[in-house]
Design a binder for these strands. Structure first.
Lengths: 250, 250
DNA sequence: CCAATAGTGTCTGTTAGACATTATAGA
DNA sequence: TCTATAATGTCTAACAGACACTATTGG
């Protein structure tokens, strides 16, 4: 954009030299900017995070979070960039995404002063299984054990921040439910929250508050494994926006 | 950094061409990145936000949030940049700062695809009054009426986000207290929270929870205006980290 | 003394924790 | 029938809301 017509823009002002000076500054003295995503899911009672193997230098071959650079032509908003990157790796767009935090410092990338805008997203294991199973450079990793791996850049730190934020959400929202398949049971949602919080929850309290806030919709279907059949629910529209006034105990 | 020795870095790898290709990309096809700060204070029962008059194009002469570009030589971390910018305008470093959110899109700056990492900070009116009163290009503006002004870029939107976040903090923390002088009374803190939340609070509840969590330290001093003398408190260390398990009602 | 207001006593209502109980499936 | 477990009943504890009350200042 700028490059296409720097003069046309500058002509409107008197200080064309100022304008061009700041333009030059941009090219030589600015930090790198990228976008990363911590994408979580819940499968077989385990919280997992998506890692991808880097195809480019630096840290080529190392595993890290999916991410990349804004494409000024393809992306209108920052979120477009992350969603594009996630879709490239999983084949689908996640039903929940939020901006986590930006991390910027002189030393987080050995090349240069670097900034990443990190997002956190949730998706069902099933919805991306078809795509991920066909590629070798993307894999779900157990969140409990990911800390033991050597990851690219400061991605270990980004994951720690994302996990903590998600843990908080488990205390005052039903947002974690977006890591489940579209239809799920109350005990499944509770197991997920328990895994995030790291301690067992009272099922009476857990159900009561979610029912009182009317966050789930009964699908009319049931599923039975061991024991009586459990009702299948789905998240209601806008249930991601709802926050309880009171946290579950940590 | 990169520009100083791109070859030295690339020599370690086989794919020097790849490396340089991505380097070129950085110069031509990357978005602008800046940092902005929503700095709040509380003075004479009014929440105020610091606005500065832009000295450069675009939007020269318009008012907006203080901010600017990362200086790769001066700044080690993103927060250094914001604190430097705030200090330039107020003469002091605020006792509380947190990252709010990053905003990036193709159209938030008419020049180019642009990203800003926006911070929210709090400071006492008194601590920056000496500096601000001497300059013409920085001023405290009533947060209630700031929405009626025409501000630079999307700063009106950034302010709305920052205000909402601060309102939430008033419901479950004592963070707003950093907008007060070092020593303050309980009724002063309550007035601030009430202004943020937009409705009166029960003083019994307000005091009770803060005392139970031991967030304030009695300075031993008192102040009296109309009525009996009020105890002067200060925020304890780490009181910004504490969050109540239960929100005040909205 | 009076108005203003800092600070407390205390009752109520809401909601999470704890845990027993009932009900319904598969083996 | 037996085990696992989904779903509910119900008591308690914690804490915010409401509001009356006391106490202490300046005018």
């Amino acid at each position: 954009m700028l490059r296409a017509s720097p003069k046309a823009q500058a002509m409107n002002d008197i200080e064309e030299s100022d304008y061009l000076a700041s333009y030059d500054l941009r090219c030589y003295d600015i930090p790198m900017v990228s976008v990363d995503a911590a994408l979580f899911t819940f499968h077989e009672d385990v919280i997992k995070i998506l890692l991808v193997q880097r195809q480019n230098h630096p840290d080529k071959g190392k595993w890290g979070l999916p991410g990349g650079f804004v494409d000024k032509h393809k992306d209108r908003h920052l979120e477009d960039t992350v969603l594009r990157k996630i879709q490239e790796k999983t084949g689908v767009v996640p039903p929940y995404i939020e901006q986590l935090q930006s991390f910027g410092s002189a030393n987080r990338d050995k090349r240069d002063w670097s900034i990443t805008i990190c997002y956190s997203a949730l998706i069902s294991y099933q919805s991306c299984a078809p795509h991920i199973s066909t590629v070798a450079d993307a894999a779900w990793v157990n969140l409990k054990t990911v800390a033991r791996r050597a990851l690219a850049f400061d991605h270990q730190s980004l994951i720690a921040h994302a996990r903590e934020r998600l843990r908080q959400k488990a205390l005052y929202s039903v947002v974690p439910g977006y890591a489940l398949p579209e239809k799920f049971t109350f005990p499944e949602l509770q197991k997920l929250h328990e895994a995030l919080i790291g301690k067992p929850l009272q099922k009476r309290s857990f159900r009561r508050r979610i029912e009182a806030a009317n966050l789930l919709e009964d699908t009319g279907e049931k599923r039975s494994e061991k024991g009586p059949p459990a009702i299948l629910y789905r998240l209601r529209k806008n249930s991601a926006q709802f926050t309880f006034n009171r946290n579950l105990e940590e």
